[in-house]
Design a protein around this nucleic acid. Structure first.
Length: 876
RNA sequence: GGGCGCUUAGCUCAGUUGGUUCAGAGCAUUUGGUUUACACCCAAAGGGUCGGGGGUUCGAAUCCCUCAGCGCCCACCA
């Protein structure tokens, strides 16, 4: 079949993806080979592909494809996350758009809507990953709410509860009034926001005196139960034992003293609202203060809010400020920038709130995970700079609030049988719970209907943290063949934004449930930003449509574009120009093969000398590049690896080798040469395949008919061999000579059709790659002359070699002389510097011998070069 | 407030751990080029006192100190 002049990226992509799937190349089962396992960071089940996913998954695919080619049993496990709060928020919004309030639905009804939504949009993102070329083992696809995955989560909860790590506590937690659930500390994002600091006067009981407090949240005064000053504050000594009146609320509250108060801040006088501030809570406990909660779950004020009941907290704030002003209680307000906690998901301002929640004790669990990274290095973070961040978080780890007041997720397997705080049991299912409850309470009359399961679900991350284990069913069946074979996995590729949310916790779970790290390398990608360095976001509209990019440029080109600028851990400024560069590269590769494929072949022809030289050079150059590529892969410098391959193919193969070996127009090519070239090109495709899987596979099948087990995707990665450095260095000189000729042509305005003669004037030693030089410089042949006779033509030099090209044109002696003079001057300066160094005793005494030797050689070379130049100058 | 990191060509970044190969790459720019694979191309060129200052060393983009700017993470100052 004739090789087409153009290719359609989209159609070859779908063709080959189907072919790969049909032949089950991505499917993995335990066997005698060594495994290479990656578990995907499961995207949200209802999510759509964005730039971050593309970056992430391209990297994983590149790594896993190379591993597969290197003979590992490659297994990339895909899946999705139920993303409790994010998905629930979407479902709530959708229902709201249909005029349905979540509060009007039963749990079962809501879950039905949520599942419908999941079935409708779930897995869309996985289909999109296929468009990107991801070679996942789709037969292993997991969803965190699958029955087996859920069972693992519940089992772990029960296990940790039984071990005493999980407890129920009434604590100050982060409340998201929008989603109406608690959040873990990690889900709260603190943002600097302009606000105001209000100075409010509280009247002293039985006195005209006022006490001024400063607050950013005046509405919480309704929940005030004390005013606090520093015990050593001279200004407030007389307040000891007194009480003040909360304005508006007209309640009497005591003045307390505590060293917690910073005298310098504001007025040095602090209002204490134990129900709505973590510090105030601590103060309240210490001083046995009352706790007045003024908010409803949705952020409106409750009955304690008096006249403001039912108002949203921010509306109430404004109103209260107004009312304080009217009463003359507002002393002043000043602009004040402070940090405000917001919900990672809903962006709502977080409200500290006291409530009953489930917590996981982290300190003891974290210890092995600290050692794994800090001491044993069984988990490596890339780039290393994240180790410090990791350590700091781990060493100061706090208990994890794992309960959420949501429905979409794993319902907490706690069952209440009475009204007492401790009247509950934890069990796999209701039946077991009943048995336990009877045992625990001693009440044999308990019936199933007396038990009520906890309404809350578990934090999404409480299922994700088991992912590398649970996808292989290693929780419920800790000895099954899959988990034993595939665990621990090799690499995890994800963003640093979920280092704590997910990565650290997976390491913790790995040690708790497998006594081993879940992965040995964590590649932390950077954020994808736009060319101006801004974060990509929907609001800014600066995020390209991932699928449109694939349609416009082709998946291969997009992958290349992403990889070209994606150093590990560095943010990546994504510019569609990079995709264009990728597309150009694809075009180049295509045409390189098209050139070879179009030649007329003469099987009888021997390989010409110049071509043989070129082939030998390229084989060495390939090896040198391969070594560098492998090295970069080992260091996870994927973009460097790609860049070397890019240059190998574009410059070394196309610009040098193909230009060298291509037959004269219309002339046939030697069959042996073409065969050789195709083999070399196949090796190029092998290197290329992880980056550009579709294009490389397409050409691979044009080069030869391949059986199903001979597809590129399952072929082998090239093996390293020794290469000849001297030969490569000689070719570099040859390139420079060719460059010299090309420059000469440009200077003399000669066309490429003018055939010239090149004379080497200061040596009669034949040059390496002479035939190649002659061919590439379009020269008639090369002459060796020991001296330059004054004749018509022009000269140029490469290092210590001097060349002359005879031409029917007088030599511009002045110009030549000036050029040589400049070169002599430069070389003399260089020589002087080297000699100065060599005459420095301390250098000679201290520098290592090879460095001194090197300097001596540099000096000798410079001297001989000067001698040659002077000789040339004289000969003019 | 604590910790970490960054600053090299117009842009994005390498610089493998003080010494050939060190001042580089890709892109962009400029110049010249198309009957002979590719204009999604070819050939060439310009461009940086390696953020400032100081120090260590025979030798510093590389190590130390300091200043400036930027970024990230953590932390309960109302």
């Amino acid at each position: 079949m004739e090789f087409p002049s153009k290719f359609n990226a989209e159609s070859i992509a779908s063709k080959w993806y189907e072919y790969w799937q049909k032949n089950e190349y991505f499917k993995s089962q335990p066997d005698a080979r060594e495994p290479y396992t990656i578990v995907i960071p499961p995207p949200n089940v209802t999510g759509v592909l964005h730039m971050g996913h593309m970056l992430n998954n391209s990297l994983q695919d590149i790594i896993i494809r190379r591993a597969r080619m290197r003979g590992y049993n490659a297994c990339w496990v895909p899946g999705t996350d139920h993303a409790s709060i994010a998905t629930e928020a979407k479902v709530v919004a959708k229902l709201k758009a249909q005029g349905i309030e979540k509060s009007s639905l039963s749990r079962e009804e809501f879950m039905k809507h949520a599942w419908d939504w999941t079935h409708e949009y779930g897995g869309v993102i996985l289909e999109q990953l296929k468009k990107l070329g991801c070679s996942c083992d789709w037969t292993r696809t997991k969803f965190t709410l699958d029955p087996d995955m859920s069972a693992s989560v519940i089992e772990v909860f029960i296990d940790l509860y039984n071990k005493g790590f999980i407890y129920r506590g009434f604590r100050m937690v982060n409340w998201d009034p929008e989603a109406q659930t608690t959040l873990s500390d990690e889900e709260v994002i603190y943002e600097e926001r302009p606000g105001q600091l209000y100075h409010i006067a509280y009247s002293l009981v039985d006195s005209d005196e006022k006490v001024i407090i400063a607050t950013t949240r005046p509405e919480t005064l309704l929940g005030d139960t004390a005013v606090c000053v520093h015990p050593e504050d001279e200004r407030y000594q007389h307040l000891k034992g007194k009480s003040v009146i909360v304005p508006i609320a007209n309640r009497q509250i005591p003045v307390i003293q505590d060293e917690y108060v910073e005298m310098e801040f504001g007025t040095g006088c602090l209002k204490v609202t134990p129900a709505h501030d973590v510090n105030d809570k601590a103060l309240g406990e210490k001083h046995h203060l009352e706790c007045i909660d003024i908010f409803n779950a949705n952020g409106t004020l409750n009955a304690h809010g008096l006249d403001y009941e039912g108002m949203d907290r921010f509306v109430a704030r404004k109103q209260i400020v107004k009312d304080l002003e009217a009463r003359g209680a507002l002393v002043k307000k000043e602009n004040y920038t402070h940090k405000v906690g917001t919900s990672e998901r809903t962006k709502a301002v977080i409200e500290p709130r006291l409530s009953d929640q489930w917590f996981l004790k982290m300190e003891a669990l974290a210890q092995p995970a600290i050692d794994a990274v800090m001491k044993d290095r069984s988990v490596e973070l890339l780039p290393e700079k994240f180790i410090n961040t990791y350590r700091h978080w781990m060493e100061n780890i706090r208990d994890w609030n794992i309960s959420r007041q949501l429905w979409w997720g794993h319902q907490i397997p706690a069952y209440y049988y009475g009204s007492g705080k401790e009247d509950f049991v934890v069990a796999q299912h209701a039946q077991e719970a009943l048995q336990r409850a009877i045992e625990k309470s001693g009440n044999t009359q308990l019936k199933a209907s007396d038990l009520k399961q906890d309404e809350d679900v578990l934090d999404t991350w409480f299922s994700s943290w088991l992912w590398p284990i649970s996808v292989f069913d290693g929780i419920r069946n800790p000895d099954n063949p899959d988990i034993n074979y595939y665990y621990p996995t090799q690499d995890l590729v994800t963003g640093p934004d979920i280092l704590f949310f997910w990565v650290a916790r997976m390491i913790i779970a790995g040690y708790e449930y497998r006594k081993e790290q879940p992965f040995s390398k964590v590649y932390l990608t950077g954020l994808v930003r736009d060319p101006k360095g801004r974060k990509m976001s929907k609001q800014l509209g600066n995020s390209p449509d991932a699928l449109k990019l694939i349609t416009d440029y082709g998946a291969d080109a997009v992958r290349v574009g992403l990889m070209l600028s994606a150093a590990a851990g560095n943010d990546l400024l994504f510019d569609v120009n990079l995709c264009q560069q990728g597309k150009n590269f694809a075009n180049k590769i295509w045409n390189a093969y098209r050139l070879m494929d179009g030649w007329e072949v003469d099987a009888q022809l021997k390989i010409p000398t110049h071509a043989a030289e070129g082939i030998e050079w390229y084989e060495n150059q390939f090896q040198k590049t391969l070594q560098w590529v492998d090295h970069n892969f080992e260091k996870y410098r994927i973009s460097d690896a790609l860049m070397s391959i890019y240059k190998l193919i574009w410059e070394d193969f196309c610009s040098w080798l193909l230009e060298l070996v291509k037959p004269d127009y219309g002339a046939p090519v030697s069959g042996a040469l073409l065969q050789k070239l195709k083999t070399l090109f196949e090796n190029n495709l092998r290197l290329l395949h992880p980056f550009m899987p579709f294009l490389s596979e397409e050409i691979w099948h044009f080069i030869a008919d391949r059986k199903t087990d001979e597809a590129l995707v399952v072929s082998s990665w090239p093996k390293q061999q020794n290469f000849d450095e001297v030969l490569l260095a000689n070719f570099e000189i040859a390139k420079e000579i060719v460059g010299g000729v090309r420059n000469f042509r440009k200077e003399k305005q000669l066309g490429f059709k003018d055939v010239l003669t090149l004379q080497l004037t200061n040596s009669d030693e034949p040059l390496a790659f002479e035939s190649a030089i002659v061919r590439l410089g379009l020269l008639e042949g090369m002459e060796y002359q020991n001296r330059v006779e004054t004749q018509r033509g022009g000269a140029f030099r490469v290092d210590k070699l001097s060349f002359f090209i005879p031409l029917d044109e007088a030599v511009d002696v002045e110009e030549e002389r000036a050029k040589i003079d400049a070169e002599i001057k430069y070389t003399q300066g260089f020589l002087a510097a080297v000699e100065k160094k060599l005459s420095n005793e301390r250098f000679v005494n201290n520098a290592p011998p090879q460095v001194i030797e090197l300097e001596r050689k540099k000096a000798a070379d410079a001297k001989s070069k000067i001698a040659i130049l002077e000789k040339n100058r004289k000969a003019l």
